[in-house]
Write a protein that binds this DNA or RNA. Structure first.
Length: 680
DNA sequence: AAGCGTAAG
DNA sequence: GATTCTTACGCTT
């Protein structure tokens, strides 16, 4: 709570508005923008809320050292974006093309299109100049540009790898680790702390000869720069009045200058070390930095200059930036909301102006400014419009704030593992169980492979710390354990030519993810096959009880509900006990041959002939039943990766948890177990 | 937890 | 028009 508020309050300095002549209602509104749905702020409150910062106030003066302005650097990796040709920029698509160009630089000068199925998902600058565009049919592209180089991009591995590499480079510059990925090709960085630190380092009398320190511990690491001017482009354009040499120093401006120089340094690093050019935006929140970053597109950066808020002179760079964007371009406002607003305004216009002659349903762009300034748009109207079952309760407020350039969302912390992994494929026709099984196996293989690449830490680097591994050449351990697996399918669209927007038409079923997928013993293919026959097929039959003839167009397999072991406090392994205790579903699948003396009885997987997954919930609570110790042997034909569902004391002196497969076993089993792993 | 919807690139 | 292949998150039950 305090954090979200301080983001708003510090970023926009609402809490200090009361210094001026503002009514207290704004402070109330600002202090609690969205935390309670009880009383949405009135329109008036929010209008004033969003531009109440007179430049003459001392909000940004050096005396307010407690004020924290968040500078967010949005980096979109973009290469060879079309210049100001009529098409919109497609950072994402260009990223795919950039990856290929980086692999083979000779492609840079040729028209390059990345193909998925029958369409061009992306193409480079050269291709665009010849009329190619995103989501174009391959045959159209070939017709338009016969010499186009077409590369297949259905396998996203290379993009994922490149994305991670670039992300890691950016992350290495961060101090607070607020580095949030958006898609493969965008990164938000909250560099407030670095900016703060360097702000304090500045010599106000000689800003032009400043040094930007990149490491707290080492004052020699950094670069020289001119703090009196921003680096790169600005919004609004023109550097005439961007100088900040005259006291009293404009603190916000100075911070933004610092952010812009840091952004330039980061872009330089990306270019020199990785060979990627990119686009960046610098401002005080995610929304503004992202939007301002689009102003100058390929290989450029833009900083949103102050003043941020109504100066009384009508000069407000936030508003003037926001107002020329289309509503649908504002991040957070998608096609649904846009359409609702459009319909609303259209209806209003019809009501008021019966005989208006615009019977032509012109798709003229719906600009932020026209919506925000429209007399019938206010919080109440938006609440009416955008509320309903299934909608977020704070959507109206958020939309209104977005339209005003206000964004209180925090930059997310850096993550080592994703929250979910999914693989999907589309099909022209998928009708028989045979085909379904075949495709499911392909999907499952990719999924398991991805789990291994994304969820296991291979070598030492991240946080081995106190792990006292003996010497094993393979020092692999799982960073996260997804708890559920989900199968989604969608049928071919039932031909609705005039429907405005058919819903996703996806349906899904999920089940607990069996623990044995974390075993490194079986091959990827073996695990994948087992997943299909023992889990996915059951899910599929739940979705499609019939025998054939479903006409599926898509299948998606996902693992979700990760228990992020790595980011938990206390180091790796700390919460694994918790995890396995809550993973009873998995344990239930183990049929244990527990005779009277079940001490080290056989362990085998129960589910070969019946659906051990779907309805395997027949463990009797309270009977103190628990799986046995794994039957640890020195041979490779026994399942070892069974774990206790007991308390923390399973980590006591008598037990050992394998870092590789997370199996819990008695200490004496450790050496044979490890030998067994290495033999794989 | 399961299933759906929206939004993002 | 929609087309691809994801990832994240909120709401409802």
């Amino acid at each position: 709570m305090a954090r979200a508020d301080s983001w708003l309050a510090d970023g926009w300095l609402w809490d200090q508005i009361t210094i001026g002549d503002q009514p207290p209602s704004r402070t109330a509104c600002a202090a609690n923008p969205s935390s309670s749905s009880s009383a949405p702020p009135s329109t008036e409150d929010c209008i004033t809320l969003l531009r109440p910062v007179p430049a003459t106030c001392s909000y940004y003066s050096a005396s307010h050292t407690s004020a924290v302005v968040v500078v967010v650097v949005v980096v979109a990796f973009v290469m060879f974006v079309s210049d100001a040709s009529c098409l919109k920029s497609h950072d994402y698509d260009c990223f795919y093309a950039s990856v290929f160009e980086n692999e083979d630089p000779t492609l840079r000068t040729r028209p390059l299109a990345v193909q998925q199925k029958q369409i061009v998902v992306t193409c480079n600058y050269e291709a665009r100049r010849r009329g190619l565009y995103k989501l174009q049919l391959i045959k159209d592209a070939k017709r338009l540009c016969p010499d186009v180089v077409i590369v297949l991009g259905e396998d996203l591995t290379r993009f994922r790898n490149a994305s991670k590499e670039l992300y890691m480079l950016l992350r290495s510059f961060s101090w607070n680790q607020k580095v949030e990925r958006l898609g493969f090709d965008e990164v938000f960085m909250d560099v407030t702390d670095i900016v703060d630190y360097n702000l304090a380092l500045l010599n106000p009398h000689d800003l032009s000869n400043s040094f930007f320190c990149l490491e707290k511990d080492d004052p020699t690491v950094g670069f020289a720069f001119d703090a009196s001017r921003p680096a790169g482009c600005t919004f609004p354009e023109g550097t005439a009045n961007t100088s900040v040499l005259v006291p009293p120093l404009d603190e916000l401006r100075l911070r933004l200058h610092l952010g812009s120089h840091l952004a330039q340094h980061l872009r330089e690093a990306l270019r020199l070390q990785k060979g990627y050019t990119c686009t960046a935006g610098v401002s005080t929140n995610k929304l503004l930095s992202k939007l301002v970053g689009t102003v100058h597109k390929p290989d450029a950066q833009t900083t949103l200059l102050p003043p941020y808020g109504d100066t009384g002179d009508g000069i407000d760079n936030v508003t003037s930036l926001m107002d020329h964007f289309e509503v649908g371009k504002v991040p957070g406002i998608g096609c649904k909301i846009t359409q609702k607003i459009r319909d609303f305004l259209q209806q209003k216009q019809l009501q008021e102006n019966e005989s208006s002659l615009d019977s032509s349903a012109e798709p003229q762009p719906l600009l932020v400014g026209t919506v925000r300034n429209h007399p019938s748009i206010n919080i109440e109207a938006l609440t009416q419009l955008l509320s309903g079952p299934g909608t977020r309760h704070d959507t109206p407020t958020r939309v209104w704030q977005f339209l005003n350039g206000c964004d209180t969302t925090e930059v997310g912390g850096a993550r080592d593992v994703p929250r979910q992994i999914s693989i999907e494929d589309t099909f022209g026709r998928l009708d028989t169980e045979q085909d379904v099984i075949r495709e499911l196996k392909k999907l499952a293989q990719s999924l398991v492979r991805r789990m291994h690449t994304d969820l296991v830490a291979s070598d030492e680097d991240p946080i081995p710390e106190d792990t006292v591994e003996p010497d094993g050449p393979s020092r692999r351990r799982w960073l996260a354990f997804p708890k559920t697996i989900r199968l989604s399918t969608s049928l071919r669209l039932p031909r609705k030519p005039n429907a405005p927007r058919s819903f996703s038409a996806r349906s899904s079923r999920s089940a607990p993810l069996p623990g044995w997928v974390f075993s490194t013993k079986e091959s990827v293919n073996a695990v994948a096959d087992r997943l299909v026959t023992e889990v996915l097929l059951q899910l599929f039959r739940k979705l499609h009880p019939g025998k054939k003839g479903w006409d599926l167009s898509l299948m998606n397999v996902a693992v979700t509900n990760m228990n992020d072991a790595a980011s938990e406090k206390g180091g790796p392994g700390r919460d694994i006990g918790d995890m396995f205790r809550t993973q009873d579903e998995v344990l239930r699948q183990w049929s244990v041959n527990d005779g009277p003396e079940a001490g080290d009885g056989d362990v085998r997987y129960g589910g070969d002939d019946d659906d051990g997954v779907g309805d395997g919930m027949r463990i009797e609570a309270g009977t103190e039943q628990r799986p046995n110790e794994p039957a640890v042997q020195d041979t490779a034909d026994v399942d070892v990766d069974v774990w206790e569902s007991e308390d923390e004391d399973m980590f006591d002196d008598e037990n050992f948890r394998c870092e590789q497969c997370a199996a819990i076993m008695p200490l004496y089993a450790r050496l044979p177990h490890e030998r067994w792993h290495m033999a794989l």
